[in-house]
Amino acid sequence: MSRMRASLVAALVTLTSLVALTTATTAPAHADECYSWTRTLSSGATGDDVAQLQVRVAGWAGYGVNIAIDGSYGAQTAEAVRGFQAAYGLSADGVAGAATYAKIYELQDADCTPLHFSYAEVDGGCGAGGYSGGSVSAATVQQNLLRAMWRAEALRHRLGDQPLTVTSGFRSQACDRSVGGSGTGQHTYGTALDLVGSSVSLCTIAGNARYAGFGGIYGPGYPDHDDHVHVDIRAGRSWSAPTCGI
């Protein structure tokens, strides 16, 4: 091979490698049916991709911490990411990159719900189905339910992946009143889930829910809650399960 031809071949190989490298670093790491992250996120980042991450890791921010889904990667979000990473055997550095996203994709169904919960089990109560007739729009109800389900997924994993069943999710105002509620409670916003477990006690559920991002927890010993644990994502904290020491 002549020296000129060898130089041309080497240049072509180099150009091909550069094109491949550019493609690899700019293309999305994953084409998920629900949502795909296209950049590494860490403290100081802002945007919808941060908010999407917050929805999925909010159940890992620590005892009594109910982080805001505000699209701003602050200290609580970093702690939630570290908690998520540690829980799933990843390097817990508080930076959301390819490994963190890959685990989220494993846990995420095509409609963005977590693997072990679905809209079918949290939609309208009283046999009505759907998301209408609540205290907020149907779209907001669904958004709230999604946030609550991801925290329930964190709770389930914290319990050793023991199955949890939702006995009541969203209720229209009429439905809520018909079952003895106020008609404007957390269920009418889509922010609340009533949970039971087949292999785990209600007190164990309530106790662990304190670490899973729930602002409201009501269980055994609280009026009309001896057969389930109510959890919700309200701001602030309102916990009562006297039989469980909560």
Results as ranks from 00 to 15, higher is better:
residue 177 R to S: 05
residue 149 M to Q: 13
residue 149 M to G: 04
residue 73 Y to F: 15
residue 210 R to H: 01
residue 59 G to C: 03
residue 71 G to P: 00
residue 59 G to T: 06
residue 215 G to C: 01
residue 229 V to C: 03
residue 182 S to Q: 08
residue 150 W to R: 08
residue 36 S to E: 02
residue 120 A to S: 10
residue 144 N to K: 05
residue 245 G to V: 10
residue 217 I to H: 10
residue 145 L to S: 07
residue 9 V to E: 12
residue 31 A to V: 10
residue 59 G to Y: 05
residue 163 P to F: 14
residue 35 Y to S: 02
residue 78 A to P: 00
residue 223 P to W: 02
residue 51 A to T: 10
residue 190 G to V: 08
residue 132 S to Y: 12
residue 161 D to L: 10
residue 188 T to I: 07
residue 82 R to Q: 13
residue 58 A to L: 02
residue 116 H to T: 15
residue 195 L to P: 00
residue 15 L to Y: 08
residue 140 T to L: 11
residue 178 S to G: 10
residue 215 G to A: 04
residue 226 D to T: 06
residue 8 L to G: 01
residue 77 T to I: 11
residue 136 V to N: 02
residue 11 A to W: 05
residue 29 A to D: 04
residue 19 V to L: 12
residue 180 G to I: 07
residue 145 L to H: 01
residue 24 A to I: 13
residue 68 A to V: 12
residue 216 G to Q: 13
residue 124 G to E: 07
residue 2 S to Y: 07
residue 76 Q to C: 00
residue 230 H to C: 09
residue 218 Y to H: 15
residue 12 L to R: 10
residue 91 S to A: 15
residue 124 G to A: 15
residue 82 R to D: 00
residue 81 V to D: 09
residue 190 G to F: 08
residue 233 I to S: 08
residue 177 R to W: 04
residue 179 V to W: 06
residue 138 A to T: 04
residue 140 T to V: 15
residue 176 D to C: 05
residue 156 R to A: 05
residue 215 G to D: 00
residue 48 D to H: 13
residue 50 V to K: 06
residue 52 Q to Y: 07
residue 177 R to H: 03
residue 240 S to M: 07
residue 122 V to N: 06
residue 14 T to C: 15
residue 151 R to N: 02
residue 192 A to Y: 04
residue 163 P to V: 15
residue 157 H to M: 02
residue 27 A to N: 05
residue 173 Q to F: 08
residue 19 V to Y: 01
residue 239 W to V: 12
residue 180 G to K: 00
residue 60 W to A: 05
residue 222 Y to Q: 07
residue 179 V to P: 00
residue 108 Q to H: 01
residue 97 G to F: 09
residue 210 R to C: 02
residue 85 Q to K: 03
residue 17 S to V: 15
residue 110 A to E: 10
residue 5 R to H: 14
residue 149 M to Y: 01
